[in-house]
């Protein structure tokens, strides 16, 4: 009898933990743009057909106010080197620098133009300094808001990177 009671308690605890686990992801901060929030790359679920998979990739995306979006992108590259970059944009069709790090305005730096297709979908295009398109990207957020898939297609290359992020 004691065993049965203990089993019930353990089962209830497990169910409770699972329930808490299922709710561990933060609620999306912006229902009008579900890409906002904190995301971490799930490398096992991702496919890097063009580039090397980073060891860690975390994006903290938020609305800084007045329509300005910010991404803090941190992590560890394939070679183990850490990176920390930040970029901003508005969904206004204009081009924004792809990074705000030290001396970003060099000949290799690119710009990005962003479009909020709907609450679950964002598309964006990378341009070089001659305004030629170098990459086409999209971010799709799942119906429950907890998984974001980013697809990157590089112009002139027959490959794509598919990155799967989970909301933190």
């Amino acid at each position: 009898m004691r065993f049965a009671k203990t089993s019930y308690v353990v089962a209830a605890a497990v169910v409770g933990m699972l329930a808490v686990g299922a709710q561990a992801a933060d609620a999306p901060p912006n229902p009008k743009d579900l890409t906002m929030g904190k995301w971490q790359l799930n490398a096992a679920k991702s496919k890097f057909g063009c580039t090397e998979a980073p060891k860690v990739s975390i994006r903290n995306m938020f609305d800084a106010g007045f329509g300005m979006m910010v991404t803090e992108w941190t992590g560890t590259r394939a070679d183990g080197k850490p990176f920390d970059t930040r970029y901003v944009w508005r969904y206004d069709g204009e081009k924004y620098p792809a990074g705000l790090g030290p001396n970003p305005a060099n000949e290799k730096s690119e710009s990005i133009a962003w479009k909020l297709v709907d609450a679950h979908h964002v598309t964006f295009i990378h341009y070089d300094q001659k305004d030629k398109v170098t990459q086409n990207l999209k971010r799709d957020v799942s119906a429950d808001g907890n998984v974001m898939t980013q697809v990157t297609e590089y112009v002139g290359r027959n490959c794509s990177d598919v990155q799967v992020f989970e909301r933190q």
Binding site: F62, D63, A64, G65, F66, M68, V70, R86, V88, L100
Partner: peptide, 24 residues
């Protein structure tokens, strides 16, 4: 504190370190 702007007459948040700036 980090912030960005253009000389284009638009309003830019006073900071890009945290969400929802009170001023531009």
């Amino acid at each position: 504190s980090r912030y960005v702007f253009r000389y284009d007459g638009q309003e830019y948040p006073v900071g890009i370190d945290r969400p929802n700036a009170r001023e531009a």
